[in-house]
C-alpha cells in the first residue's frame, strides 16, 4: 500500500476490510483491559493479558498484509513465544512466593486474607487495614 496510489476496485475492498478488522480488534482490546483491571483474582488478570496478546497477534498479521511487508510475521511469531513464556514465569513465581509465605509463618495467610477482605469491598475502606 502506497499512500498516493490509486487503487483498483479489488484492492479498495481489501483495504477497507483490513481497516475494519483492525478497528474492531482495537475496540475488543480495550474491553479486555477492563477485565484486567476489574478481575478480583490474579488469574483473571493474567487471562485477560493473554487474550490481549492473542488479539495483538492477529492485528500484526493483518498489518503485515496491509503494508505488504513480509517480515512483520516474524515479530508475531516471537510475540507468541514471549507471551507464552511470560505466563509460565508469572505463575511459577507467584506459586513459589505463596508457598514460601505459607511455610515461613502459618498465620501469614490469615493476615493477607483479612487485609484483602478489608480492601476489596470499597475503595475508601482500604486505608484502615493497611
Amino acid at each position: 500500500m502506497q499512500i498516493n496510489e490509486k487503487l483498483t476496485a479489488l484492492e479498495a475492498v481489501y483495504h477497507g476490510m483490513y481497516m475494519t478488522v483492525l478497528v474492531v480488534l482495537a475496540i475488543m482490546l480495550f474491553a479486555c483491559l477492563i477485565r484486567a483491571v476489574k478481575g478480583p483474582r490474579v488469574a483473571d488478570r493474567i487471562v485477560a493479558v493473554n487474550m490481549m496478546g492473542t488479539m495483538v497477534m492477529v492485528m500484526i498479521t493483518v498489518l503485515s498484509l496491509l503494508l505488504e511487508e513480509g517480515f512483520l510475521v516474524d515479530i508475531c511469531l516471537i510475540y507468541a513465544l514471549v507471551s507464552f513464556l511470560a505466563v509460565i514465569v508469572i505463575t511459577k513465581v507467584y506459586v513459589g512466593v505463596f508457598r514460601e509465605t505459607q511455610q515461613n509463618s502459618p498465620g501469614a495467610h490469615e493476615e493477607i486474607r483479612n487485609r484483602n477482605a478489608l480492601e476489596t469491598p470499597g475503595m475508601g475502606e482500604g486505608k484502615e487495614g493497611v
Binding site: 488469574a43 493474567i46 493473554n50 507464552f84 509460565i88 511459577k92 506459586v95 505463596f98
Partner: peptide, 17 residues
C-alpha cells in the same frame, strides 16, 4: 502452547485460593 498455559493458570488458581 495454549493448553500448557491454561493448565498452569488453573493450577495457580486452585493452589492460591
Amino acid at each position: 502452547a495454549s493448553p500448557v498455559s491454561s493448565h498452569l493458570l488453573a493450577a495457580l488458581e486452585v493452589t492460591t485460593n
